[in-house]
């Protein structure tokens, strides 16, 4: 280990405190007794966690968010993994262009995607809002799959696949038996990243909310606008616990560095 400079240590410490303090404050405010948010808190209570479950918009939002994020991510894997494979196999013409097409949702601001889908799919084509919401989240998940699975395919030795062919395995079967098991950690990583990103997304979902259809982050945002109370803190604590759980799973399976 190399020597560290005192100023460098000081600066880094301030940055880490800056990163952790705001969320720490949110956690503390969830346990107060007062109906308004206070810091430091007076008394100790878990009532706001009970409130979370009584807040209909949170519960409905949670359901919608889980439903949308899981299925959008699954869909993006089903569409994205074969595409990433085709792009990596290198026999495709205009590979760079096609790759950019698949990454294009990252070049378009989220709010613009949401606006475009709302206007075209929901208003013009009269699709259900939930369908547009699903498609929007599918679009923003796809680039994660292409990037992360693509990079694990870059490390994949394609002669392994060819070996399977020479041993009498058809192309489809080899893909399932030999390619997929060797990029499974990449697929898992891309799933986690795409899921977290989709679950947390706001700009795309902003336009795609309607009666009974609202993702959790949007519900939270609307709630804060009218009721600035510790229920939000309690909900935040619960979401943070989920984040910690996900981070723990990622650390145990892939190592956190893989998603950094």
């Amino acid at each position: 280990m190399r020597k560290k400079n005192i100023w460098l240590t000081l600066m880094a410490s301030i940055v880490f405190i800056f990163l952790i303090i705001p969320l720490f404050i949110v956690v503390v405010t969830a346990f107060g007794e007062s109906p308004s948010i206070q810091f430091p808190i007076k008394g100790f209570s878990l009532q706001w966690f009970g409130e979370v479950f009584k807040t209909k918009s949170f519960m409905r939002g949670m359901k919608t968010s889980l439903f949308i994020s899981i299925w959008a991510t699954v869909a993006s894997i089903i569409i994205g993994v074969p595409a990433a494979y085709a792009l990596a196999r290198g026999t495709v013409k205009r590979r760079a262009l096609l790759k950019n097409v698949f990454l294009s949702p990252t070049f378009v601001p989220g709010i613009v995607i949401g606006f475009a889908l709302f206007q075209f799919l929901t208003i013009k084509l009269q699709m259900k809002i939930i369908t547009s919401l699903f498609l929007g989240h599918f679009l923003i998940s796809l680039p994660y799959i292409i990037r992360v699975v693509g990079s694990s395919l870059e490390h994949f030795d394609f002669s392994i696949e060819e070996a399977a062919w020479t041993l009498g395995c058809t192309k489809t079967k080899s893909f399932v038996k030999v390619v997929l098991p060797n990029i499974s950690s990449g697929i898992f990583a891309s799933f986690m990243l795409a899921f977290i990103n989709s679950f947390n997304n706001i700009p795309v979902s902003m336009f795609l909310s309607g009666p009974g259809v609202q993702t959790l982050p949007i519900a939270l945002m609307n709630h804060i606008e009218y009721n600035y109370d510790p229920t939000v803190s309690a909900m935040s604590v619960m979401l943070m616990l989920c984040t910690i759980l996900l981070m723990w799973v990622i650390e145990k399976t892939l190592g956190l560095a893989t998603i950094a």
Binding site: F16, L19, I20, P22, L23, I25, V26, T29, I37, F39, I196, F199, N200, I202, P217, L220, M221, I224, Y228, V232, S233, S236, L239, M240, T243, I244, L246, M247, E251, L256, A257, I259, A260
Partner: peptide, 23 residues
């Protein structure tokens, strides 16, 4: 430290903005 850095990144931006409203 990486976990400390990633934790806010993986936390919803509504919560992160909410924290700054509180502050």
């Amino acid at each position: 430290l990486l976990a400390v850095t990633l934790f806010p990144l993986l936390t919803n931006s509504v919560i992160r903005s909410f924290a700054w409203i509180t502050i």
